[in-house]
Design a protein around this nucleic acid. Structure first.
Lengths: 231, 231, 231, 231
DNA sequence: CATGAATGAGCTTTCATTCAT
DNA sequence: GATGAATGAAAGCTCATTCAT
């Protein structure tokens, strides 16, 4: 391959104005849709408003997404599902203790997802799952199951390495999942209504949760004295 | 205990059947609305269905509540019952270990609240907080804050009695609160859409959470091994 | 029953203005719908226009008919299906020859149906059956089958009384049906485009058809001479 | 027979492939449009589907036809082929009885026209006549009138040869025309929606019609019995 | 007070048509 | 010429809200 072809940041770089616009459309629409879905919920978001915010007409939206549901699914894939491969790789490559891994993951999860508009989608699903069972099923399959699988792998790693006690995985997963999901729900609902001074600082919240998840709240029982005697 | 109760706990007692019905109307409407809002959410609940379920006509609903929004607010306000005095007394009188107290409270909370229509209100508020910030603030003040105070008392009891390690109370509270709220949210959203066999069994979920909250997931560190008779 | 109750032309005469309107609505809507369906076809008739022509708003139409399809079915029932019981009775009570009966029926069919706006519905169905299979099935069941049954009864009467030759009923029915349906189709399509002098005069058309149906176009063959030698 | 044909039967012959394609475009479009209009009717045919089936883009369609209506008219005009000269010759050369001629013509008409895509055009025109009166008039003049003339000639032949009884020609023609047109309409509408077992078998249908057209449904009157050897 | 008939703005989706490239 | 991205007017249907009775 002589004369190195210039590196296009997209396959087949768009040369004309319309072509460039055409390439940009889907992500412009997805961005607008994410904003509005998070802001107003699924049912209350009007297709036309998404289009308008993306700077196109109502009809154009349906040129790229065959229905509102399809648009929503694309938003989920773009903003959530796509994060999983990276997580999976990191899990495989992590070399520290599982306690460290868990800590790392929870903080990374917050910065890459929870602290992001994307987390509004999770809140949306929890809010509207009942009314849109198809969306719920899709989310369950596309997001929840893979997410639980990742957590399961972390816990299994801990058990396999003799770091964690054996446990019922089904519920062990929720020990990690529940506090994280609560944080997201809280942020997108009541969290916004709390007086400033009592707001949750996510990093501190996560720290507290992980401490507990690892060691519990209890003080070591009687034999703890033995520990104190060690160097 | 006859006669002791004052003739009417409401001003203007209802003497005739029709008069009593008139008085009952709003609460019949509120009851129907509660059911439907919890079942379908705010947007998906139709005014006419509320009226029908309450046994009145659509027009009558708007005689008592000026709008759907007004009805919703009334439902929420009406149903944020004050369970706290009872909890508070029980806390004071409990004589077992704090671990036992915590366990007891979490299971009681589930049976008295989580497993009840009332938990639907919490889900509703989390879902609609963005659209009804005053309601969220109201709920925050009337329910969340007192609830956090109760948990704080439990934790403090544990610390004071040397059962729990010292901790930052602000976040310690969420260690207990988050898993419980997650359970409620899950039950009213994705949980309702999952295949039966993968559903959460609340009792098992709570058991797993409390185990972790008390002891963490980690195995006792190296010296602990010594306790078990190792060299 | 003393004091004869005045004979209301509707059950439960409407006393108030709104009640009277409410009673009239369905038939006003059906009349408007019949007009428009016949004039423009099924697909091209807009629900709102039906409502407007009936003097109500779009929403009101859907108060009485749950969908456009439902409206159409009601139009069919009101204008076509409802005619069958009368036909059936007349068939049973007719006392003349079957040739006379057939003649009578064809002319009556024209005056009661073919010459009426209702016949436009038959044309509509033939035009749009392909695109609305549900409507086609409904019409087939509600109109075509009962209609074929009536014709079958006439022909069977003729055979049973020794007036008609035995025949394959399945196709015998079309001998009567086809010319009548053609007349209706023609009237609602090309018939309107013919120069005046060559327009079909339905009565003459029917006369010619019935002559043929009864006796054919052929002159009696050779033995006809025998006939000529009678009286 | 090389060279004999003039170099091009169209002005401006297409010499290159692209030029030839350009010339072919309109007819490719017309062919695709014919298929779709026949299959789905005017309203239900989408411009884009026509273009796609013709292998061009939506925009190109509108380059050749200024509107869907324009396209429709072109399709109809293009496909009203003139089969009459052939029929006319056959009529002149037929040597059998007129009953045989009629039978032959009806069956030939079915195989050459009714059973062909061309009959879809007739159905289309009957269906859309109201919306396109000029087309209807055009069809009336180009197809219907000549067709009626042919039938008239057959009937007249029968009368002239003493085979058919004298009749009013104007309506006699419809005796032949109506059943055939009905068959075509039926095939393209309700016939397509019926369960297989109750479908019309065209050959049987035609047989039954011709029997009736020639001899009627009635049994020969009383004297006819004498012929059969009865007392 | 209570009713329920009536309204009409609003929603998602379709598709003939235009026009910059 | 040819393309296909973009448009926007409809269409069927819903439902909170009004108001004459």
């Amino acid at each position: 391959m002589p004369q190195t072809t210039p590196v296009g940041d997209h396959p087949a770089v768009a040369h004309t104005k319309t072509a460039r616009r055409k390439q940009a459309r889907p992500s412009e629409l997805l961005a607008a849709a994410l904003d509005l879905f998070v802001e107003k919920g699924y049912a209350a978001t009007r297709a036309e408003e998404v289009a308008t915010r993306a700077g196109v007409s109502k009809g154009t939206l349906f040129l790229y997404f065959s229905s509102k549901e399809d648009l929503f699914k694309a938003v989920v894939r773009e903003n959530i599902s796509d994060l999983y491969p990276e997580w999976s790789t990191e899990l495989d490559n992590f070399s520290g203790s599982t306690a460290e891994l868990l800590h790392y993951c929870m903080r990374a999860w917050w910065s890459r997802f929870g602290d992001t508009k994307a987390s509004g989608i999770s809140k949306l699903i929890m809010s509207e799952a009942r009314n849109f069972p198809e969306l719920a099923a899709f989310y369950q399959q596309e997001v929840v199951e893979p997410g639980r699988e990742l957590i399961r792998r972390i816990l299994q790693r801990g058990i396999d390495r003799g770091e964690f006690r054996p446990m019922n995985m089904q519920y062990g997963v929720y020990v990690v999942l529940a506090p994280m999901m609560f944080l997201v729900m809280w942020k997108h609902s009541l969290g916004a209504c709390m007086p400033m001074q009592s707001r949750i600082v996510p990093e501190d919240y996560i720290q507290a949760q992980i401490n507990t998840i690892l060691h519990g709240l209890s003080l070591p029982a009687a034999p703890a004295a033995a520990q104190k005697g060690h160097p």
